[in-house]
């Protein structure tokens, strides 16, 4: 059975509808890439999937015993975090919050889990460093480790490589692919259609035309062809 199913989903703020008629399914082990232009509603879709806001219409169904708090999430960065005094370890540990709703303090297991995920992301040497003094790539790894503490099943990533240089971007993609191999379902927003096509198993394109299907189907579709053309043409202003 599918992990997440969207049925005739529409998204919007207040009464303004941004996207409608979304139908897609995410199965366990999938690597879904969500692509579309700036402002097409990708972040909004992610917020809706996370239950941060209500859908304007339609439904999202969770299956396979997926609970609402078992989704890890890597946000598109907010301004507040930029000058927040917090050590890397504190931030990674905070990913365990959802597990210990009733307990005020972290258990030994949770501390171990945090340690393990820091190791996975290669940020053990940074554990005591201040988050705001890290480079963009290091920060993304910290947030990814935190997301991993929150889930063993599904990761939602909102533009995990924006602002990273090509080398670090490639490393980031490898890391995510690695996690996917380990059995974690990935749902990723990306502007980088080339890599999306390289790594993803499924593509969801939102915008004027909505497309959902496997990667190969996408490459054959008109939406895919158009979008690939645009991206190649407008490489200069790619974010």
């Amino acid at each position: 059975m599918a992990l997440l199913t969207a049925r005739d989903l529409s998204l919007g703020y207040d009464s303004r509808i941004i996207v409608s008629g979304l139908n897609f399914t995410v199965s366990s082990g999938d690597y879904l890439c969500i692509v579309g232009e700036n402002g097409s509603g990708k972040t909004t879709l992610m917020k809706t999937l996370l239950g941060l806001k209500k859908p304007a219409g339609g439904q999202i169904l969770a299956g396979d015993g997926l609970k609402a708090n078992e989704i890890g999430y890597l946000p598109q960065q907010t301004v507040t975090q930029k000058d927040f005094p917090a050590s890397v370890r504190e931030i990674v540990l905070s990913g365990c919050q959802g597990r210990s709703k009733k307990r005020p303090f972290y258990s030994r297991d949770e501390k171990k889990l945090a340690e393990k995920n820091m190791d996975r992301m290669g940020i053990i040497p940074l554990a005591r460093r201040c988050y705001r003094e890290l480079s963009g790539g290091q920060q993304q790894r910290v947030l990814l480790a935190r997301a991993l503490c929150a889930t063993g099943k599904v990761l939602l990533l909102d533009e995990p490589v924006s602002g990273l240089d090509p080398k670090v971007t490639a490393e980031m993609y490898e890391l995510i692919a690695q996690l996917n191999h380990e059995g974690i379902t990935i749902i990723m927003i990306s502007h980088d259609i080339g890599s999306a096509v390289q790594y993803a198993s499924h593509i969801l394109h939102i915008g004027d035309s909505v497309f959902f299907g496997s990667k190969d189907e996408y490459l054959e579709s008109s939406a895919g062809k158009n979008f690939m053309m645009q991206q190649k043409g407008g490489d200069g202003n790619d974010r």
Binding site: L52, N69, G95
Partner: peptide, 8 residues
């Protein structure tokens, strides 16, 4: 947002 998404 993250806190909310993890069920806090």
């Amino acid at each position: 947002n993250f806190a909310k998404a993890t069920g806090i």
